[in-house]
Design a protein around this nucleic acid. Structure first.
Length: 458
RNA sequence: GUGAUUGUAGCUCAGUUGGUUAGAGCGCUGGUUUGUGGCACCAGAGGUCGCCGGUUCGAGCCCGGUCUUUCACCCCA
């Protein structure tokens, strides 16, 4: 017999997990809709030509490729084997699983550019696949919850993103978190200011590790990447400075980036984002302007975000930024957009670690009807139907069994109420309603039970 | 992709320098209780020791490979 197993880095979600995941997903969806985003779904698989080259060389290796159907060796010749995997790939696979939701979205926008009215706001909640090596909080199949606005460069979008993040985390009961904001132009400005213009890519990769390995090691890495001692020297005060609030950070950055047009622009943009945030009635609580935030993604050009839950050893649970040329590779240039994404799987892990589930768990059904035999069960069917008609989720034990067994089932499943139907109850029409949590049991008319449970369901 | 690490009952884990029929707790099934779950007591079921191969008279234990888990790097949600 074959032992069943799952592919590496994938998981099943049982009933309890699904309840919790759906709670998170519904919260996110609600929020997206509340801000005027519309749903979009795209296929799990895309043409490989759509996917390759969009995530860098590393990304291409992490793509799951789909072997062509039928005789996949049809187009190959023996010499192809000698050419190596890279050359062979295009002949045996033309499709791949999506790696993120942004590229399929860009593809969709380009294909439907004439039908869409811009600015176009869409959200998309679907699994993505990466042939990564799994770790905690890192899977080969995981969900992304993206919301993007394309076709406008208004910084209001950035401010609304902050508001959406705050709403979601509040609804989920996560309070100790930080939304870090920076602007790619500020990073460009920093590179220019320290005399390393054009090396911002390297700067980002190194600076991103700051809270992980510390300034000293980052300095070493910068040196290895060809930064001069004086550049590193110049960078040092900015990195080491601890700002007490956004106002102070803005002041310092303005001074620091005085000589850089890009840098000054970046600061101005962020100021406007903060202005909009105030106008929306949002506080700066949980929001941190962090000039050292440097998300590696190559396509961000403006604001960048990252959300971390404090005191939990898991990476970012949300992130995003503005890109000026999302659709350019598909032949539609100059479409500015800004988007962000929640990592449900990580949010789940965080909430579990913080013990936030439990209060949010919903019972599988409100009430179960236990009975003593076929006649009693038939009587119970009438009751169960009435309950369902009133919108109360209810089930009746499907077979005749010892009452103890029926109670046991309800208890294990976590059903809060049990109604017992016996010959006495059938005669009088007065049923016993027992709360499994308290153990209290009361006799009352069906109508009364219906009212109590119908009230309780809200 | 590089370097480590893990795997014994459904779950969490014991298992002596390699030596008979591999154990515990929890869970599960049944009973004590044919109109009541949780608690208690009693009984019972359940294991190709991840998989394949090797060394050995003999392997859960040693060796190789493979899969899986976790971790660091790379990168990322």
């Amino acid at each position: 017999m074959l032992k069943p197993s799952l592919p590496k880095g994938t998981r099943d979600f049982g009933p309890v997990e699904m309840g919790r995941r759906n709670f998170i997903l519904e919260t996110i969806k609600d929020t997206f809709r509340l801000y005027g985003f519309q749903a979009l779904e795209t296929p799990a698989m895309e043409n490989l030509s759509t996917l390759t080259g969009k995530y860098g060389e590393e990304g291409d290796q992490l793509l799951f490729k789909i072997l062509n159907s039928g005789d996949f060796l049809k187009k190959t010749h023996t010499v192809d084997f000698e050419e190596g995997a890279q050359a062979m790939l295009t002949k045996i696979a033309e499709k791949g699983l999506r790696y993120d939701l942004t590229v399929p979205f860009a593809r969709y926008v380009v294909m439907n550019r004439n039908e869409l009215s811009f600015p176009f706001k869409r959200y998309q909640i679907q699994p993505v696949w990466r042939a990564d090596r799994p770790q905690r909080g890192r899977y080969r199949e995981f969900y992304q919850c993206d919301a993007d606005v394309v076709g406008t460069d208004s910084l209001l979008c950035e401010a609304e993103i902050v508001q959406m993040i705050k709403r979601v985390f509040q609804a989920l009961g996560i309070s100790d978190y930080t939304i870090k904001i920076n602007n790619r132009k500020i990073l460009t400005g920093i590179a220019e200011t320290i005399g390393a213009a054009g090396k911002e890519q390297e700067l980002c990769v190194a600076i991103d590790k700051l809270d992980k390995i510390g300034w000293e090691k980052v300095g070493e890495e910068l040196k290895q990447r060809g930064f001069t001692d004086s550049s590193i020297q110049d960078l040092s005060p900015l990195v080491k400075k601890e700002f007490k609030d956004a106002r102070e950070t803005f002041g310092y950055l303005e001074e620091f980036l005085r000589g850089s047009v890009a840098g000054t622009n970046g600061v101005e943009e962020l100021r406007l984002v903060f202005d909009f945030l105030s106008a929306l009635g949002g506080s700066y609580e949980n929001v941190q302007l962090d000039p050292n935030l440097a998300r590696g993604l190559t396509y961000y050009t403006g604001a960048i975000f990252e959300v971390k839950v404090n005191n939990v050893a898991i990476g970012a649970v949300s992130g995003g930024g503005r890109y000026d040329n999302l659709t350019g590779v598909f032949g539609l240039p100059d479409v500015s957009g800004v988007g962000f994404s929640f990592g449900v799987d990580r949010i789940y892990d965080v909430m579990e670690e913080l013990g936030l589930f439990g209060q949010t768990d919903q019972p599988p059904v409100q009430v179960m009807i236990a009975h003593f035999g076929l006649e009693e069960q038939k009587f119970g069917l009438g009751v169960v139907q009435q309950l369902r008609d009133r919108g109360v989720s209810a089930e009746i034990y499907p077979e005749s069994a010892k009452i103890k067994k029926q109670f046991n089932y309800a208890d294990k499943k976590g059903v809060p109420y049990v109604i017992v139907v016996g010959s006495e109850e059938m005669k009088t029409g007065i049923l016993s309603l027992k709360s499994l949590a308290s153990g209290e049991q009361e006799k009352m008319k069906i109508e009364e039970i219906l009212s109590i449970l119908a009230l309780g369901k809200k």
